[in-house]
């Protein structure tokens, strides 16, 4: 493993399409629920304890798995955890984008294991786990990367949509970093436990009902800047 590979993969400039997604922040900003650095922090705190933990658990579980059938089951388990059809579609699309970028950056048979798990592409965390394995990163890196991606997308969108001071937004992410690390560590433990029992159904299923609802609403907006 190299640290540089982790930085490269986690960088929001890694060309895997994430820049077009706000992770629900555009809706929250439009509704006035997020309007400054303090409310961005609250929004992200909610994400880190719910979506980020689920995403990281699945990324770690995918890293631990080299069996294609089990990976397909994992992909299905993630699918049923996303209540919003729109978010299911986004997750698969981001998975496709990531697969393309990683295939060019770190070509590896390990990554090819998740190709075609679904006609629309495997879910993003499933591809992310395989991508980390392809880049010779550790399972902890996979979970950390997943948590970071879940937080970075809304944070970047907040800067763009609300004109917030980017330094303040960076400070918010730094304040969340210890929590993000703890969540990543917990995700790896949960993934190992599920692996031991060969039961991906044990992986966490925390959700954010309001984000599911606003995602469906957002998809129908006539004017929107982000895909989510």
């Amino acid at each position: 493993m190299t640290r540089s590979a982790l930085l490269l993969l986690a960088d929001s400039r890694f060309p895997a399409g994430a820049h077009a997604y706000s992770g629900g922040l555009e809706s929250a900003a439009a509704a006035g629920r997020v309007h400054d650095a303090a409310t961005v922090y609250e929004f992200l705190l909610g994400r880190v304890h719910t979506g980020a933990l689920v995403c990281a658990s699945f990324a770690a579980a995918s890293w631990l798995c080299t069996d294609r059938e089990a990976l397909a089951e994992l992909d299905h388990e993630y699918d049923v955890r996303l209540l919003s059809p729109t978010l299911r579609g986004h997750s698969r699309r981001l998975g496709r984008h990531l697969q393309r970028a990683v295939a060019a950056t770190w070509p590896s048979p390990r990554l090819e294991l998740v190709r075609g798990l679904d006609p629309a592409g495997a879910h993003h965390p499933v591809v992310l786990g395989a991508a980390c394995a392809a880049a010779e990163l550790t399972v902890d890196d996979a979970a950390t990367c997943a948590v970071h991606a879940t937080l970075a997308a809304p944070a970047n969108a907040a800067t763009k949509l609300l004109g917030l001071d980017p330094n303040e937004v960076s400070a918010v992410l730094a304040r969340l970093a210890p929590t993000a690390d703890r969540i990543a560590a917990r995700a790896v433990s949960l993934a190992r436990m599920a692996r031991l029992r060969s039961d991906p159904g044990m992986l966490p299923a925390l959700g954010s009902p309001l984000l599911d609802l606003t995602a469906e609403d957002h998809a129908g907006w006539e004017v929107r800047l982000f895909a989510s």
Partner: peptide
Amino acid sequence: AVQTGCSPQTAIREDIAANLD
């Protein structure tokens, strides 16, 4: 139609994933 998330230039230049798709 491809959504570009506030950055039309990013989507054609440094992160072409959605357009290639």
